[in-house]
Nucleic acid binder design. Structure first.
Lengths: 249, 249
DNA sequence: CAGATAATTTAACATTTATTATGATTTCCG
DNA sequence: CGGAAATCATAATAAATGTTAAATTATCTG
């Protein structure tokens, strides 16, 4: 883990992604709080279940998992995945104590938001507070979707749906839909996120490949047939509450 | 569905349950907004996915499920269950559009909170706004637990954990731990909440009975061995953020 | 209370997924 | 580049859960 003190000029441009729910004016207010950045290597545990946090993280680059000890399996279970432009643990601001670990899955860059100045900022800006609230509620909506996916879908549909979500959230994060996207998750990560074994994930990915939907290989997700993938995974993006489609004055 | 206009004297006493996160003073401020009550019969759909809501509900009595169309099964999937003293769809206040149905599972009494007066109240009270935020975050924590439970636990543990949560949340709702509690869920409801079939739920309940953990019958949950039930279900209540153990000044 | 309806139990069987193990491939690092 | 360590693929087998259907019990309604 390394820490670097950056000039907040670096933050003067609002990153795209979920944080886009904030207006430019609102971004201009938080940016000054985001001066301290950190970097994590793949597999680092950033915070632990039970920790009392006095700050939250905004993910700038990479992928982060929120993870809990698994019921009976050897591995952990991912209860959430965070993409660039998303707050990782904003819920720690009102909730204080974490109910899950926070783990970096790739090389990761984050900006730190201390709760104290954030509180002062929010005290003076009700609209802004409501936006942050909203962003944690989008998180919750995604949780609900994960409950449905992992409870009610078979392996093939489940993995297809998971990859569709990955694609959609990457599109939100980078503001552009791509046919080929960087995919740094291992099959064991997909397993942890979908509640399957990595062996079965391997089988399932082969099936998706043979269906002509997509190929996961070499750190890349190649989408051959997005529509087909969505169909197999019964994917509808409404639950993501993507910023542009949701903006209210 | 019936509507009755009540004198808000009826609301002058703060119900126990999750709403206990609010201080007495805070309760005194919302109570005047809770003058309109409604009643629902079992199985009524209270609101639908996609609905734009201008109000939220506080559950006074009964059980409510938040439900989504199931991936591939015939039935629905429950993504959340609400107990008395909990807000049912407070997230609709910042989020506006619902991503799930709201369904009454039993005879149900709710109080309606219109968003407009709530907004005005919150504008003038930052602390209170933060408390409501917190309550939706407890919801999210429970969602995460459901993801883990339905992704990583086998049927026996999964049902045991579900029943443990039911017990714990009823204890929070009524402020007292009981050996026998009213249980109005059918086995198909347990199935919808745990991602199992009702046939398998039946088998699993028998197993729990034979283990000497608990008996579900005749609208009643009889807990023979709470400790044993918790052990089988690997249940730890921290994720519920029960009010009394969490109060900050 | 009787009949109708809904909920539960059970069994036989089918399917899905997990488990274990081994070999192939890729990635990492010196 | 070359060897070690991860990661991935595949197969054989086992275990868990789903499916269907029928019998039983409980609940509701008149």
């Amino acid at each position: 883990m390394t820490t670097e003190q950056l000039n907040y000029n670096d933050m003067s441009v609002k990153p795209s992604g979920m944080v886009d729910h904030l207006s430019d004016a609102q971004w201009a207010k938080v940016a000054p709080l985001l001066t301290q950045h950190m970097h994590f290597a793949p597999g680092e545990v950033i915070s632990r279940r039970g920790d009392l946090l006095d700050h939250s993280l905004l993910l700038l680059d990479g992928l982060i998992a929120r993870s809990v000890p698994s019921g009976q399996r050897a591995r952990n279970t991912f209860v959430a995945l965070q993409f660039p432009g998303e707050f990782v643990d904003l819920h720690a601001f009102p909730l204080k104590r974490l109910d899950h670990d926070v783990v970096s899955l790739t090389d990761t860059r984050v900006a730190i938001v201390a709760h104290e100045p954030l509180r002062e900022l929010l005290n003076g800006d009700v609209e802004f507070a409501r936006k942050l609230w909203l962003m944690t509620l989008v998180d919750a909506s995604i949780h609900r979707h994960w409950v449905m996916r992992n409870s009610a879908m078979r392996a093939l549909a489940r993995v297809a749906n998971f990859l569709s979500e990955f694609d959609a959230r990457m599109s939100i994060a980078y503001g552009t839909e791509r046919q080929s996207l960087p995919f740094s998750l291992r099959q064991t990560d997909i397993a942890d996120a979908t509640g399957l074994t990595s062996v079965h994930v391997s089988r399932t990915l082969r099936e998706l490949r043979e269906h002509g939907c997509c190929t996961v290989a070499g750190g890349e997700l190649l989408i051959h047939d997005r529509k087909g993938l969505h169909k197999v995974g019964m994917f509808e993006a409404a639950y993501l509450y993507a910023p542009q489609s949701e903006m209210a004055p």
